[in-house]
C-alpha cells in the first residue's frame, strides 16, 4: 500500500487526522495505566531490600524514560523542520516540549521522594541527578526561546538549534551511571543484559511506560492542533473550517 506522506505533512490535512487519532491514544493510555496500576500495586511483590518503597519505580522510571525519549523525538522533529523547512515538523517539536518538561519534572520529584527514604537524602549532585536537572533546563530554555521570538520561522530555527545542541545531554544522562561513580544505582533494564528484576515487576513498569507513551502522543496531538490554529488562524482553510458553522 502506498501512502502519500507528503499529503499529511501539511497542517491543513494533518489537523483533522490528528483529531481522529487523539481519542484512540487517550483510550490506550487509560487502559495501559489501569493495567499498570493493577500490576504495580496488586500483583508485584514486595522488594527484598527496599520493601514497599520500591513501588515508586513504577512512576519514576517510566517518567525518566519519557523525559529522555521525548527530548530525542522533539530534537528529531526540530532537525527535520530545520532541514526541510517543514512547518508541521517544527510545530510537532514545539508541541512535545511542555510534556517532556513535565515528565522530567516528575522524574526529578519522584526520584527525590524515593531517595529520601532509601538513600537518606532528597538530592545529591551526582552525575545522574545533575544531568537530568540539566535536561529540565534545556526543555524550559527551548520553551522560553520559542515563545520569545514572534516570527514563527525564526523562532522555529532558534529552537531547533537549541534542541539539537542539547541532545548531547541525553546519552550523558543514560550512561552517567556507567561512566562515573554515582549514588544513583545502575540500569535495571539495559540492551546488553537480562533485566535485573523479576518479570511481574518488569511488566508493571512496561505497562506504565506504555501508558505514559500513549498519553504523550495524545496530548502532543492536542497541543499541535492548538498550535496549528494559533499560527494559521488567518489562512483560508482555517477560515473555511470555522466560517460556515453558526
Amino acid at each position: 500500500m502506498h501512502i502519500n506522506w507528503f499529503k499529511y505533512s501539511s497542517p491543513q490535512t494533518f489537523y483533522p487526522l490528528a483529531g481522529k487519532m487523539i481519542p484512540w491514544f487517550y483510550g490506550l493510555a487509560v487502559l495501559f495505566a489501569l493495567a499498570g496500576l493493577y500490576v504495580s500495586f496488586a500483583l508485584a511483590p514486595t522488594d527484598f531490600q527496599q520493601g514497599e518503597a520500591y513501588r515508586i519505580i513504577f512512576v519514576h522510571v517510566p517518567a525518566a524514560w519519557m523525559s529522555m525519549f521525548i527530548y530525542i523525538v522533539m530534537a528529531g522533529w526540530a532537525a527535520f523542520g530545520l532541514a526541510l523547512n517543514a512547518r508541521l515538523s517544527a510545530m510537532m517539536a514545539q508541541a512535545l516540549a511542555p510534556t517532556g518538561a513535565m515528565f522530567t519534572f516528575l522524574a526529578l520529584v519522584t526520584g527525590s521522594l524515593w531517595g529520601k527514604p532509601m538513600w537518606g537524602t532528597w538530592w545529591v549532585w551526582d552525575a545522574r541527578l545533575t544531568s537530568e536537572l540539566i535536561l529540565l533546563f534545556l526543555y524550559l530554555g527551548f520553551i522560553a526561546l520559542q515563545s520569545a521570538i514572534d516570527d514563527p520561522r525564526r523562532s522555529d530555527r532558534a529552537g531547533a538549534v537549541l534542541a539539537l545542541v542539547g541532545v548531547v545531554n541525553v546519552p550523558i544522562i543514560y550512561f552517567s551511571v556507567k561512566w562515573w561513580n554515582t549514588l544513583h544505582q545502575g540500569s535495571t533494564i539495559s540492551m546488553t543484559a537480562a533485566p535485573k528484576m523479576v518479570t511481574i515487576m518488569l511488566l508493571g513498569m512496561l505497562f506504565m511506560a506504555l501508558a505514559f507513551w500513549m498519553y504523550s502522543i495524545a496530548v502532543a496531538l492536542v497541543r499541535v492542533r492548538c498550535i496549528i490554529l494559533e499560527r494559521e488562524r488567518s489562512t483560508e482553510w482555517v477560515k473555511n473550517l470555522f466560517g460556515e458553522e453558526k
Binding site: D47, F48, Q49, M118, W119, Q185, G186, V198, M201
Partner: peptide, 18 residues
C-alpha cells in the same frame, strides 16, 4: 557528617533473594 545508603539495581521478592 552524612551517611547515605547506595542500593543496587536488583529488584525481587524476599523469597527469591533468599
Amino acid at each position: 557528617s552524612e551517611v547515605l545508603a547506595k542500593h543496587d539495581e536488583n529488584y525481587m521478592p524476599p523469597e527469591a533473594a533468599e
